[in-house]
Amino acid sequence: MDAIVAEKITKQFKETVALKEVSFQVRAHELFGFIGPDGAGKTTLFRLIASLMLPNSGSLKVLGLDPVTEFKALRKKLGYMPGRFSLYQDLTVEENLDFYATIFGTTIEENYDLIKDIYSHIEPFKTRPAGKLSGGMKQKLALSCALIHKPELLILDEPTTGVDAVSRKEFWQMLKNLQKQGITVVVSTPYMDEAALCDRVALIQKGSLLSVDTPENIINSFKTELYGLRSVDMYNLLIQLKAYAFCENAHLFGQYIHASFKGELNRNDLLNYLKTKGIEDVEITGIKPGIEDCFMQLMVSNETLETV
């Protein structure tokens, strides 16, 4: 059985369309990621799944239940971690966990096994008010609270935003472990490097899904040759590349500019072109595309589609 089945869900806030006929399936025991920039509609989608909001149209089944009519049964099986830290800052770590355990009708002891890996990191600080924890520890506490009732499905809205690189890595390891324990995990993130850690990802932009597939397939679907370019004056290089007649796409990624070209790349022609623009120290290498490149490409084609 699929954990989530969404068919043509639309959500509108007055004039703003947050989600446009979004359809996808999340399989049971999957680690599923929604990747997209801020404002793409990730949080809205998660709030719909968590039964906090009603869709305008379309059908949604979560764990076989309708979040609109069967929200009571659903909430017992669902763990939700909002993007904003939503625990009581003036209660201690232990009090928060105890509180959520009680309102779910369980105790910390009963499900301690499930949260042990996560909670053990913050247990030394259990008498500290939640508001005084560091960002990474806050997220671990929030995750513990979302797990305390042993949910079948865990949805996490941007859990790693604002968390340092080490904690992020640790956090993803925890999610992998939870998946191994049979929990379906749905996570959203604006960081594309995290996409590769998911079983399947959905690229979302402006309320529409661009692609839903495994990270490998998304990368393999990138047909055009990709090149990395480097120069001393990166900014000028980027501008000149975008002005180059055969250039299809050019984006700055860290130390390199990733660019794709129409047809076969004629290196000499490109170098000559750049020379006339005063850029002589260009280094060109063929590179393997990453998920970010795919996303950029899909985003650009989505935008051109829209303008047509």
């Binding site: 906090l52 909002p82 904003r84 939503s86 009581y88 779910f104």
Partner: peptide, 13 residues
Amino acid sequence: EIGTIEQINVTPI
């Protein structure tokens, strides 16, 4: 205001 209602609302309370 501080958003805790969000977490409360997803509980079966």
